[in-house]
Design a binder for these strands. Structure first.
Lengths: 169, 169
DNA sequence: AGCCGACATGTCAATACCGACAGTTCATCT
DNA sequence: AGATGAACTGTCGGTATTGACATGTCGGCT
């Protein structure tokens, strides 16, 4: 169900085309939920059929801009407030972090270092986003979420550094 | 592919039955990857067919204990070290955290408080696990992973508390 | 005019995943 | 002896997800 509500959530913020939604999934939502355009377009069609979204404009290249309908807005609210959250996770990186210390010390170090450089890169990107939000000065709704991402990544980065140091002679 | 390698990883630690694997997914791996028995049994059959695991013992109630074969061990190592990690996530809680501040202040507070009490509970559980590992005194392989879980949950807990305080008058 | 790359939308077959249904086996309690 | 419940393994239909294929549009560069 998360795909459906992620789309409703993004549209609640700004009406968008399928293409723009795909980009937002890649950028903002990539640490929460991944989806590609081959899922997004069919889901938009279903949502339109269900009356939760509607086409509110057409642009160049046949693009259609979707917006939330009132039932859509209510459905999103209902899900966020009333529905029982599903806490199940599916996170390959986390599986790797978990299993990596089954490896012998050399391989383990290689794996941790690869993860570390990835986290460091991601952390830089997030800090870039934060800086950008500060410069804009506007009341960006998702600023706290960016902050959370930074804190979580920092914790993971430090943990990885400890793992690597522990392995050192 | 993560299901497959999660199973190989758990079996690398201890030979287990499908039932035991199901429990381990619920306990140790629940913050990384979720899987239910209806996925695990068929996957074990596939892995056996592929020669990556084998039945190394039979117990009461028709139970079969699976262990890794050498090709299985190599395949796990290959995946952990050489395969390109897939960083995509699927985490409904995270989607909720992201979308919750689209709600009006009252609903938002309700949602954050529900999440907070869940995280606090989970944190207590993890600390219980850590205490248990310390008491055992043995060199438990996954102790650092438990520590990481505690740190990440702590960061999320504090962030939620800030959100709730910000909302207060 | 021709070409390229980003924009934009879609479909389809294969695989992954979920929840419900279903059955057997053993230990313990009454 | 019968009931109960936890241990244990499986299957199945429906939905979700992926990756590849397919098609066309528009702006800018040469």
């Amino acid at each position: 169900m998360s795909l459906r509500y992620s789309i409703l959530g993004l549209l609640a913020r700004t009406p968008s085309t399928g293409y723009e939604l795909t980009q937002m999934f890649d950028r903002s939502l990539r640490t929460s939920w991944h989806a590609s355009h081959s899922q997004i377009y069919p889901e938009l069609a279903k949502l339109e059929h269900a009356g939760l979204v509607e086409v509110i404009g057409r642009g160049p290249r046949r693009s259609k801009t979707y917006g939330l309908t009132n039932p859509g807005r209510e459905e999103l609210r209902r899900w966020l407030v009333e529905a029982e959250p599903d806490r199940a996770q599916r996170n390959e990186s986390s599986v790797r972090l978990f299993l990596t210390n089954l490896l012998d010390p050399t391989d383990r170090r290689t794996a941790y270092e690869r993860d570390l450089s990835h986290v460091e890169k991601e952390l830089e990107e997030l800090k870039g986003v934060r800086r950008q939000l500060q410069d804009e000065g506007g009341a960006e709704v998702f600023a706290p979420q960016v902050e959370l991402g930074i804190r979580v990544d920092t914790v993971i980065r430090d943990w990885l550094r400890e793992r690597i140091e522990d392995a050192a002679p």
